[in-house]
Amino acid sequence: MQNKLHIILFLTFALSACSKEIDLDLPGHDPKLVVDGRIETGQPPFVLLSKSQDIFAPTDLNAFLNNYITGALITVSNGTNTIVLDEICTNTLPVEWLPIIAQVFDIAPEELATLELCFYTSLNPVIFGEVGKTYALTIDFENEIYEAETTIVPTVPLDTVFWRESKPNGNKGFSWARLSDPAGVYNAYYWEVKRLGRDDLFRTTLNPAVDDTFFDGLTFEFPYENPFSFDEGEPDTTIGFYLRGDTVVVKFSSLDRPTFQFLESKHIQLNSNGSPFATPINLPSNISNGARGVWAGYSPHFDTLICID
């Protein structure tokens, strides 16, 4: 709540005041291993390795491509099977896997196909994600060992999803859902969407990560905005809304607590980055040995919403 207030204030000042680029010496940093790892129900594990970059390091395409790390030894274990992940590059990737990998990199499939980006995975079905299992990740890189665990928790489905006009005959409105949160257990959720026929990749809303601290055991309805509208040059009056006729796929994932904590902090930082009203936040990683990033387990429920009355 406090952070929302600070974001409002930050945006007010940043938008209404005079802003300009300046040069200033910033303290240097010690590069750290960054792990962007995920495992999802029915999907193979994916791990992207990179190193954190100096704030003013080159940001051209080559620097971006060269920052992904190859040559690491990575294993994933579900307690029964321990699998060594293969290093695969996008230019050798089977076409059917392209949309899935595109989601991991958050790069459109057609663009991804033109790049040589390497990652680690295993197509061995014994290590695909299963609800209720805990997955241990071990990375051996440059004589250092990095370890993490994540659990794919039971899926909590939405009762229903629907669209509600913001005002009569407005032809625009938020997506809504009704959730019955299981009582007595910790639950955390992550909300992603894409519009059928318009978007290749799922995208998160402004505050997609939430846990049930406030609503344990309750049934309630809640709205979510359209995240694509912010980049589409829509008029101010339609930003945030779905339009009548949109078809939206909702991906509503359940998370374990460390994954939620990372994702919650991530989106707070994305929303309030640089604000003088917020405390500087480094994202809480569940990787050992000082690595950044997260090894995240997702337990998604999918639903389709057609924006009609």
Partner: peptide
């Protein structure tokens, strides 16, 4: 003040790492 001194990518998003 405290400003980020490094950054990294997570799922395509730029995340900043704050220094001392």
């Amino acid at each position: 003040i405290t400003l980020p001194n490094s950054w990294y990518l997570h799922n395509g998003d730029v995340q900043f790492e704050f220094g001392d």
